[in-house]
């Protein structure tokens, strides 16, 4: 499956899960900021991706969920070096170029882009 084919399927998944229009689902769109995803939507997206691509997505693999409640990972509202390293290890599918300049936890959502999901699925189906 090509990246374009994966993109189209991910796009369809997000349209169904979030009730957005196809032109909103660009590769650079963020799930929370641009597409309005809330917490339950992340699980809905995981369910739908599993079905669409016939893959298993262990909880916390696509969207790591217990980074923010580890005091070792956070200081003054930013990820510590240890926290950032941990997050990068757990999200090889995300692009950290902008985030690592200023790892403010409020900006963590910007890591969750449509492209992040595409990268994750590409890794999963080629594995």
């Amino acid at each position: 499956m090509t990246e374009q084919e994966v993109f189209e399927k991910v796009q369809e998944t997000l349209i169904e899960a979030l009730g957005v229009d196809d032109d909103e689902v660009t590769a650079e769109a963020t799930l929370t900021g641009d597409l309005g995803a809330e917490s339950i939507d992340f699980l809905d997206i995981v369910f739908r991706l599993e079905k669409a691509f016939d893959i298993k997505i262990p909880r916390g693999e696509l969207f790591p969920d217990n980074i923010l409640n580890n005091p070792e990972f956070i200081k003054d509202g930013k990820l510590t070096d240890v926290g950032l390293t941990e997050l990068k290890t757990r999200m090889p599918h995300a692009d950290f170029t902008d985030f690592e300049q200023d790892p403010d936890i409020n900006k963590m959502q910007e890591l969750f882009k449509v492209q992040t999901v595409i990268n994750y699925v590409m890794g999963k189906i080629s594995a």
């Binding site: 339950i40 699980l43 369910f47 599993e50 909880r59």
Partner: peptide, 8 residues
């Protein structure tokens, strides 16, 4: 039921 997980 299309999906049944521990949390949802």
């Amino acid at each position: 039921i299309t999906n049944l997980a521990p949390e949802a």
